[in-house]
Design a binder for these strands. Structure first.
Lengths: 359, 359
DNA sequence: CAGCATGACTGAAGCGCTTCAGGAGCGCTA
DNA sequence: TAGCGCTCCTGAAGCGCTTCAGTCATGCTG
């Protein structure tokens, strides 16, 4: 079994078998124009019959100083992460971009600290890292810096020397709040995903609202609350529930709490569509009608938002573009480019049937 | 900028700075017991001040002939893949297992062929591959074989020399069908995810039902149809809709078609919970009640199945275990073990409120 | 004090590949 | 036929690390 692994053919094996130099065999794979096509054919044929599957990726990476992979760092474990389709869409955009350039994707799931363990990051074979929604000051980010790897940041910490793609979270949230205000609502509730990476769900105390390490949460919550305040609604009178993740079930739980406050809010602002879907479910549980008894708005505009019952009023952000852009940036940095100015993608309010004037 | 990358310190840099041999510096990182702790401290300290972030992962991989990564091959692109929480759960189980052993996860999304492109597989830096639900004969599998990498297969092709973890799909499907038969149903419809990797959705013709390359689809569909036949229901009289993926929206589409056949089926068998949720939605769209007008059963028992409206009768499979087991197998193969006998996980029917006797 | 473990460190041989400065051969031109 | 520019191929120097067989003091035993 030792010999199993040891006996694998290498470039030299093939070179010897064909009777050419190792460089020539290498060229057969990487620079077809450097040798006659007949020789190339002969080399490839011999390689095949020897069971040689092409240049070893690791050795090639060492020699070229490039591992042709982009690392993707997540704030959470995978199951939590993918319960929100927003991430899948972003990741798909990213994956198809880098895949098209023959790069692969190394996933680094996070743990309780709100990011991957630094040791994972130090050992990851990737030559550019993408940070997705990590909290400010995540240790993983130090590990990236220590390795001197180029970094592209989606949606989160503002770091020197990193490429960024983000979305007008504050503006979008603000528009959603203004929409509700415009409909005459006076009593609100806010349902947000994690403000802190500690895995806590529950009503949000005053101090927990400040110093929020997740920028996205901070901006959306801020956009909601500031706008309400400008509209004459005291933030202190707005109950806020923090769900530790962004999925329906957690949303349902939080919404139930919000919908049973006295007096009951007539409008709910949610920081994601998933949470909003949970809220729709909670309303059904409580036999409240949406938007009759209570208006609900989401954030993201995932495809399903158009089909929910009722269809969701939400803030659209271009998720696939976000991923694609991140992929492009990663590739650019890899090519030696300096981080360009941050890409800021637009958001827009999509009015559907889950909001209505206060009755 | 050239120099930026070139100037990165290496083991030698640190060795020279401290005045020891390179081997000693290497030992400082990998075998603390091989040197005095005071020297080790000094080395680490110097490394830090030099901006050396630890041994280069690629070089280390080459020297150790191990890249400490497991490759994960998917049948589809990422966005489609993750719209079904079942995959997230499996992947999370896998990720936490391998992560615990300091291995990382390389994702290889598939394309229209039903698996990752072979070139991606040939170049992936992983020393064991796991195939998730790939179709039989996927080209990616040849690429794995060509490289001589150990392989663990989840849910799909039966390959010589691979470790396997699978689920009693046929048995589970059969139990679901028997349950419905026992409730007195006579007219059925089947809603399945992809039978073929060609991205086609629609009613399933007779020939398309045979030679199904996805084993899971084959077994579940077979389990449904065979059991119905034994119960006296001709498979040819059972309309089958194939959705190209496993998400709600596709399920809703297919279910709408199935629910508008004449005569209308009184029971729907779905190959996944996501499709079943779509069916629940379709019923609402058509103002049919579940289970009053039509019974619906799913497959997987994802967490949400317990909370849907109505809660879903479904076939439970241990998703997280599946992922964990795959991770363990991968690690075992890496350690040089031979593929053990296939792990077959049990399924069981969970009766909830989406099925009822025929009225 | 000879003999011998033991602990601490080193030299050098790889790991499998890419790349670049040439060299050899060959058909053209002037 | 000298000279030139091609095309096709090679030699050798790395890429940054691990590992294993030693070497060299040092302290301990009998």
């Amino acid at each position: 079994m030792e010999s199993d692994r040891r006996r694998r053919p290498t470039l030299d094996t093939v070179a010897a078998a064909v009777g050419v130099s190792r460089a020539t065999v290498s060229n057969a794979y990487n620079r077809p124009d450097q040798l006659s096509s007949s020789l190339r054919e002969r080399i490839l044929e011999t390689a095949r019959s020897l069971g040689y599957a092409g240049p070893d990726p690791v050795a090639r990476s060492l020699a070229t100083r490039s591992s042709a992979a982009v690392g993707f760092m997540l704030p959470q474990g995978l199951s939590g992460a993918f319960s929100d389709p927003a991430l899948s869409i972003v990741l798909d955009g990213l994956a198809s971009t880098v895949d098209g350039h023959d790069h692969s994707l190394v996933l680094m799931p996070g743990d309780a600290t709100g990011g991957p363990r630094p040791s994972i990051v130090s050992r990851a074979q990737a030559d550019v890292m993408v940070a997705y929604s990590l909290p400010d000051l995540a240790p993983a980010l130090d590990a990236v810096a220590a390795r001197g790897l180029p970094l592209v940041v989606i949606d989160q910490p503002v770091l020197p020397d990193s490429a960024r793609v983000e979305v007008q979270d504050y503006t979008g949230a603000s528009a959603a709040a203004a929409h509700l205000l415009g409909l005459g609502h006076l009593r609100f509730g806010v349902l947000t995903f994690a403000l802190h990476p500690d895995g806590v769900s529950g009503p949000v105390s005053h101090e927990r609202r400040s110093a929020v390490p997740f920028r996205v949460s901070r901006d959306r919550l801020g956009g909601y609350l500031d706008t309400l305040e400008k509209g004459g609604v005291k933030p202190d009178n707005v109950p806020v529930w923090e769900a530790r993740g962004s999925d329906r079930e957690l949303g349902r739980l939080g919404a139930r709490w919000l919908m049973t406050r006295t007096p009951r809010p007539s409008a709910l602002l949610c920081t994601s569509d998933q949470l909003a879907f949970g809220a729709l479910q909670a309303a059904r549980d409580l036999t409240l009608t949406v938007p009759g008894d209570i208006s609900v708005v989401g954030f993201d505009d995932v495809p399903e938002a158009a089909y929910s019952d009722p269809p969701l009023t939400t803030v659209r952000q271009p998720l696939a573009d976000k991923g694609r852009r991140a992929g492009e940036l990663a590739l650019e940095l890899l090519a030696g480019g300096r981080p360009p100015r941050p890409t800021r993608l637009d958001v827009s309010l999509v009015e559907r049937a889950s909001t209505a004037p206060r009755t």
